[in-house]
């Protein structure tokens, strides 16, 4: 945490709000906020093929997950022993060198399991985007299910989520393994 009190306070407030309110609410706020608050015509905003619905989803998810990741990394950094900093200090490493060479590589290894969890949750959370009418997979499945009066589309959607996460899991396992050369 920052030694500058005001900076630390701002981030603590940010994390507290983002973790303490529903992601769905945050999605609504990012999507409708610009229009209700500033009368911005978000319908005309687009970056390449992405309309504002999609952009708002990216923004809301980034803000929300940044808060969770920040907490995970804070925990990881604080779990490092004082001795590591002290050894680096007396060897003459600068603060920046100490952070990037000594602390961060060890922190990454420590937080990886928690980060994996968050990434997998993130994939499943994308189904929330339907609340601002982003046609993501779950929206499609719902539509197909009611049109066909069948649960098969839901099962298919579930399979897609699962396969995506299976792939992510496989990648993360490899990363974890690549860092298991020390304990």
């Amino acid at each position: 945490m920052s030694k500058i009190k005001i900076v630390s306070l701002i981030f603590r407030f940010y994390i507290s709000i983002l973790r303490g309110t529903p992601l769905m609410l945050q999605l609504f706020l990012v999507y409708f906020g610009p229009y209700y608050l500033f009368k911005v015509n978000t319908g005309s905003i687009a970056i390449g093929p992405f309309n504002y619905r999609f952009i708002a989803t990216i923004i809301a998810f980034s803000l929300n997950y940044a808060a969770y990741f920040a907490e995970i990394f804070r925990g990881g950094i604080q779990s490092m022993s004082k001795g590591q900093y002290e050894a680096a200090t007396v060897l003459g490493f600068s603060k920046i060198q100490t952070y990037f060479k000594i602390i961060l590589p060890q922190v990454v290894k420590r937080v990886l399991p928690s980060v994996s969890n968050e990434i997998i949750t993130l994939v499943k959370d994308t189904s929330l985007a339907q609340v601002i009418s982003v046609t993501e997979m779950f929206t499609r499945a719902s539509a197909a299910a009611s049109a066909q009066v069948s649960v098969v589309p839901f099962i298919a959607a579930g399979a897609f989520y699962y396969l995506t996460n299976l792939l992510i899991e496989a990648i993360l396992n490899r990363v974890e393994k690549s860092m298991s050369y020390y304990s």
Partner: peptide
């Protein structure tokens, strides 16, 4: 000054990675 001395810790404090 830090380059003029060495320090050996009780619990080593080697860099495990």
């Amino acid at each position: 000054i830090r380059s003029k001395f060495g320090l050996v810790f009780q619990n080593f404090n080697l860099f495990p990675h």
